[in-house]
Design a protein around this nucleic acid. Structure first.
Lengths: 258, 258
DNA sequence: CCGCTTCTATCGTATGACTTTATCGCAGAC
DNA sequence: GTCTGCGATAAAGTCATACGATAGAAGCGG
């Protein structure tokens, strides 16, 4: 349970105390250890676990409030919010999900969203890309092609590839979904680690997307990206099924660096 | 400058002090009064404007940190973050944008996102809707059809219509984008208030979407929703141009209730 | 059995002191 | 003259404490 999102430096500092408390509470909520009831039972527990002042605790709660995980109402208590309230697309919330066991339903939802969004992003990227964008995407692709299948550098390159496409789409709102897309990527990579075949086979697909973007062919870029996402979803769901069938805890996890 | 998002109760309590401070700071950042430089000049100013303790101030900063608007680092200070870091799709961040002058670029981006996402949501809704979903969507449609064009109840019904469709899509990740879609709706309604013709004409489009969803015709629902979004964007951009040409400040704003 | 009062738990706010961390500038060495 | 390193310093972070307000529960009285 020690995976951290290393896509981009998460907004809240995990080195600081309040950040650690926030994460602890968030994971407890996301895993379901705390349902929609009181959250305060942990107040004393946390005090004993890590001696933490009320300040740090409150600031952690404020962070969770801002992300919709809890609802603090004066005098009545601070309750874990129901799932519909969560800002599931918040980068931190997404990354906290990696601390919990894979939730097949949620991963499927994320992939579905990605399936809708990323082809559109690719289309826009094809229409609006600058030469600098091309350079970024191409560099990322080279990183993927050159690196060893599941090396960290390769994974970073993969994420950079997709991020660069979102960036090239020149849409600030769309850009915010890049973290969600990258989260699905990380789930894929986490779950199907070791399946080198799937990885190698996905390389030409990436190249095709790149070429379509270079050609400014929006329709083609969109279609190819859609294919890429669907393939990724299929292999991921297959892996997820396998892992579920064997043992959940054995899923290899990526080490967090930096 | 007194518009509040009334789509759903925003996660952070605006009655509380820290919420007000957070909003004040957020608006200052979003409007650009504070760029990417120090934010602390306000610390003293705020102390004088509303006497606010360090506690409230810090908790407000934590909220903004959680939403990516600021970055606090020891010794260097608390800086407003660059726009790429903002969680633009966060409901609160979206609502704070209503406090600022309309940013045409951002509205266009939001509509673009909506253009990609909402047709897909309609498709899923058509495929997965239950009879309860139909009841909700239909009730919202009736509210739109029966109410006066720009009455508040009508606007609420309009928002409920779109929200209900997202809800029927049965996808938690997608659901999080409902707030963004509703924000575009609000921008539309804010900007083209008074244009009764456009509103009346949009009614049949809504009904067509509803019927397609009832028929479980995903393709049709998607196509009709796409048309609806495009129409909305066109009239909105036209209004925006007009308003820009005449006077920005004269844009009528919706009163916030509850 | 119901309604009112009281009581308590819990959040919100305020304040002051101390700690940690990172930046900047000065002094010394090469 | 440039580089290195150490310490001064400023700002955020943390802790402890206190008080106020009130929602909700418990107890009391009718």
């Amino acid at each position: 349970m020690r995976v951290r999102d290393f896509s981009r430096p998460t907004t809240l500092n995990p080195d600081r105390l309040f950040g650690q408390v926030a994460q602890k509470l968030a994971v407890a909520i996301i895993t379901g250890r705390v349902k929609a009831g009181e959250l305060l039972p942990n107040e004393d527990d946390l005090r004993s676990e890590i001696s933490v002042s009320r300040t740090a605790y409150r600031e952690a709660v404020k962070i969770l409030t801002a992300k919709g995980l809890v609802e603090a109402r004066p005098k009545s208590g601070t309750r874990a919010a129901s799932r519909e309230r969560w800002n599931l697309l918040d980068p931190d919330v997404l990354s906290w999900h990696f601390e919990a066991d894979p939730n097949e339903r949620f991963i499927r939802d994320l992939f579905e969203l990605r399936r809708f969004v990323e082809p559109s992003a690719a289309r826009l990227a094809a229409q609006r890309r600058t030469s600098a964008d091309i350079a970024r995407i191409e560099a990322a692709y080279r990183g993927m092609a050159d690196g060893a299948p599941y090396a960290e550098a390769t994974i970073r390159a993969d994420m950079a590839f997709h991020e660069a496409i979102f960036s090239a789409a020149q849409n600030a709102a769309l850009q915010c979904l890049a973290s969600a897309v990258i989260a699905t990527l990380q789930w894929s990579l986490l779950l199907k680690t070791g399946d080198e075949v799937a990885y190698i086979e996905s390389l030409p697909d990436h190249e095709h997307v790149l070429l379509a973007i270079i050609d400014r062919d929006g329709d083609l870029a969109s279609a190819r990206m859609a294919g890429l996402v669907i393939d990724s979803l299929n292999t991921t769901l297959a892996s997820l099924g396998t892992h579920y069938a064997t043992e959940t805890g054995k899923i290899m996890r990526i080490k967090h660096t930096k």
